[in-house]
Design a protein around this nucleic acid. Structure first.
Lengths: 215, 215
DNA sequence: ATATGTGAATTGATTCACAGCG
DNA sequence: CGCTGTGAATCAATTCACATAT
């Protein structure tokens, strides 16, 4: 069952959310129609997406919520616990370390790092902040595969290089800058400023100059 | 100059970032090749994207950094100041209210809201938290067009409805849930948990069941 | 000589219609 | 009869090659 298009993966994550919330309210079966409605996609899209990774439904009666949830978790790799590190213990890194709800999502914090000597030794959630030089050791010992990158933009590329060298293969980049990584390493950007700027276009973007500019 | 595809808008934001950083280091001209390199796109893609909204370059010598930056800001609607509200003054809302750097991005906080009486009256950056019932008034008085939605997932849809009713047309949704809005209102999701789950697929997503499941 | 702007070609994603199964 | 699974058709995005302007 070949690899799944990234656009589809994004929607599978949304479907999984909807399923979890349906399960919590005791719903047992769901149709592509209703799932699409709640996830903001068409029923066509839902069926196509789900068919990309298996045959999970029953014709005539839809999908079993519990089964589909289990299968999507498996497809997305959410059957194991993922140890995660945080690099950059500024305001955002600290807020993430305090985030109470990772357990519900199969992620566990196993390391918190910074280069600032004032921050090393500080508490961060249940962890103690360590110097970034400790990272490779911790990544190896804890089997860390992914990390939050929460350093200032100017430091992001260097920190990403350190993560990659230590063997981390997935980076969730919160810095408002592009980071470059070798093949085999994956970056997901979480960038609210970019989101604001896209909103700005949608709300007020001009129809642009219709002619040449330049001097 | 018709409307720009959303995929392109996302990259224009990235190009603008790169240009700003080039300008800060005194670079005056840039080629599609180098811009693409720094933004993580191909030179083809850069030229096609830029050509979608005008003719900003000079054949044989590339783009003038200052000119292209100015034009992209105009295309993206970043020539005016955007007043923004925050709804939901939990940890995340407070962290955003304290964020020092909005000025550099043309956004200004003009309102902070919550329904919790304990939070109303509290300081939030330079603002004082108001009750959500004050929102429509403030939106009108301050001309607020977009808002951060930082309430718990279970409260997100209701809060979004309040925002829409008050006339807000762009919502930056930080809650890990789908929100539904009428046509003409735009939602951008900022969802690090979804990002983690997409990373999970990329790193460990199984090749999926190759056969039927269901009971 | 050099690097943009753009039609043409290709690839990929979404929409649709309907066959197939329960 | 209802709703899924899927090939075909449409639509959009990306890649490419090259004519064009400086």
């Amino acid at each position: 069952m070949a690899n799944i298009p990234t656009a589809t993966v994004g929607r599978l994550v949304t479907y999984l959310r909807v399923l979890t919330s349906l399960a919590a309210t005791g719903v047992e079966r769901v149709s592509s129609d209703e799932l699409g409605e709640r996830a903001g996609s068409s029923a066509f899209q839902v069926r196509k997406d789900l068919a990309t990774c298996g045959r999970f439904g029953t014709r005539g009666s839809g999908y079993t919520v519990a089964t589909l949830e289990r299968e999507l978790r498996r497809v997305l790799g959410l059957t194991r616990e993922w140890p995660v590190a945080i690099v950059g213990m500024g305001r955002l890194g600290q807020a993430l370390a305090d985030y109470p709800n990772f357990g519900a999502y199969d992620f566990v914090l196993r390391g918190a790092f910074d280069v600032d000597p004032d921050k090393v030794g500080m508490a961060a959630g249940r962890l103690t902040v360590q110097h970034l030089s400790e990272l490779p050791q911790v990544v190896r010992d804890e089997g860390i595969g992914m990390a939050f990158l929460t350093v200032p933009g100017a430091a992001a590329q260097a920190a990403a290089d350190t993560l990659v060298a230590a063997g981390v293969r997935g980076i969730l980049n919160f810095a408002p800058s592009v980071i470059h990584v070798p093949d085999g390493v994956r970056v997901e950007n979480v960038d609210f400023l970019a989101g604001l700027q896209r909103l700005s276009y949608a709300l007020g973007g001009l129809p642009a100059a219709s002619v040449d500019v330049e001097a």
